[in-house]
Amino acid sequence: MCFTQNFSQYLVIGLANGFLYALIALGYTLVYGVLQLINFAHSEVFMSGGFAGYFVLQAVVGKQPHGVMSVVMIVLGIAAGALGGGLVAFLLERVAYRPLRRRKAPKLAFLISAIGASYFLYNLAGKEFGRTSLSVPYIFNGSNSGIAFTIFGAQVQTIYVIWAVAAIVLLVSLDRVVAKTKLGKGIRAVAEDAETASLMGVNIDRVISQAFVLGGLLGGAAGFLFGLNFGVVYTMGFTPALKAFTAAVLGGIGNLRGAMLGGLVLGVAESLPLSCVNPAWQDVIAFGILIVVLLFRPMGLLGERLGRSA
């Protein structure tokens, strides 16, 4: 029976995936806000976070942590993933974007540069770390995918709880940073009118770099959280990042809360139909949504907010 059988189970899975999409989507939307460009190498920021978390946990996890130690390991993994993602995003901006900006290159050049950087990074990862998926050490009672509790007939995996809690903390933190801090005001000012921001003493280059790093921190953390469940491999960024891009467009590219909402909506929208169709449809549905949004509501659910007024 469509949409009734296992409805709550698919809703839970959709929301859980949605939280990760939201974290990744913010990276796209932050960079778009200040540069009006899609950073198509963001998938590799995500992948880098996955590997950074993997290696740090590999180095420190002893025998089957549980209780408080599990939480410590999660926080450590998230921090490592975030730092890895932030660092790669920072370098990407320096190497693949800034030189083009200096030369006032056309937008197409940035796109090609980003795709080139993406290929470079994931092939480098494939060469260095192997082409097979690596399992992140178990940090939760001998498993990373145990069942935490059951609600309305839906089994909620421990990993989903971790994703949700971590994502909510990170999303709320980012929202506050952008709304309240000097850094956030600089990002918003550059997004609204970069030239005038520079007349106010805002260093545009630095703000652009900060936007990349902020997005990288979240994307990298998401990479670790994803790897915790699915393992890490050099190609891991491709599909989740493309979906997160869809989520950013769905929410309204450039709009931070739109990216958060878009992530959750996309996660649920691609998951719910699986209660009546073959799971192979999942990606087809997700990217079908991208096409439909681009055709009928290109400004997304919440419209473009961070970006220009015109």
Partner: peptide, 18 residues
Amino acid sequence: RIFPRMTVLENLEIGAYR
């Protein structure tokens, strides 16, 4: 060229960014 989506106070704060 004021920042239309920032508040009056935020516009003033940006003026003191340095």
